[in-house]
Design a protein around this nucleic acid. Structure first.
Lengths: 145, 145
DNA sequence: ATCAATAATTAGAATAATTCCATTTTACTG
DNA sequence: CAGTAAAATGGAATTATTCTAATTATTGAT
């Protein structure tokens, strides 16, 4: 059973854009594909460099524009660590992040239903959260990934 | 039973500075007092404005320097929301933050031992966290504080 | 108290990430 | 394929923060 995973991505992209009456330009398609094709946490600048392999003349402003669009469409997520440059994340499932202080690498930490429930349970009555961010910093003893 | 809370702060400041062989300058003392005297989450610029009531000639660079020192000494904490300017927090107990999308106000959410334990439990084997940040964004229906 | 040594403050320049702006190019509709 | 609205582009502008070099303050020893 082999299927083209990027066909699914393409469908998701087109339908999300159509919903907001936005156009599937080659820049948006390319930025989206680049993010989906590697499960890491690139900055806008990383993305610019990767995208330029296919679209050598794309500008940084356009990369920022595309990223904003993709985030608005909930096709990719934004991650911020302190005030270092924003990173973008293809993982749409609820998860936390772990930043290794030694290498700077960022890892996704998956969260099960139970964890998410206990997370949201810390909010007192009267607080309605639309979203949350949980991030850890520290060192990783086992180096996988 | 009345006591001078700022006497305690002063002691904490002096002893923390001495531990690192740093000098208790009037700028550091003033920045620290300003942060401790109001339980909110000011930016460096907010702090500059407040401190200038007492030290009219203090510079923004000095405010940044003082804040860095205070954070290093673990006398105040830094909070970041997305990429807006860093905020500083007098609350040293482990807690989460909630940002109201409507007003921009930031609220401390206290965490009991049990919550902290379940938070740290999301980390798989091999991850050692030195610290974590948990923040929520949403709306606050009951307006206290 | 005075002095030297060292640390801290200062103003302004420099930097980094991101956004804005005015113009050109592209995509959709008829 | 022509007209219109949206998007891309390059460069300037902005924001938060850090750096730099010169001045000033604090400390410890006389």
């Amino acid at each position: 059973m082999t299927y083209d995973i990027s066909e699914n991505h393409k469908r998701a992209l087109y339908s999300a854009l159509r919903k907001k009456e936005l156009r599937p330009t080659k820049q948006r398609i390319c930025v989206y594909n680049i993010i989906m094709s590697k499960k890491d946490h690139p900055t806008a600048d990383d993305i610019l460099n990767r995208v330029r392999k296919n679209l050598p003349t794309i500008s940084l402003a356009t990369v920022y524009n595309c990223l904003e669009t993709l985030v608005d469409c909930e096709l990719v997520r934004q991650v911020n660590f302190d005030r270092s440059s924003t990173r973008f994340c293809p993982n749409l499932t609820p998860h936390a992040h772990f930043k290794c202080s030694e290498t700077g690498n960022i890892f996704d930490i998956s969260l099960d239903e139970e964890s998410i429930r206990s997370l949201k349970a810390v909010l007192p009555k009267g607080y309605k959260a639309d979203n949350f961010e949980l991030s850890f910093a520290g060192s990783k003893t086992i180096s996988s990934n």
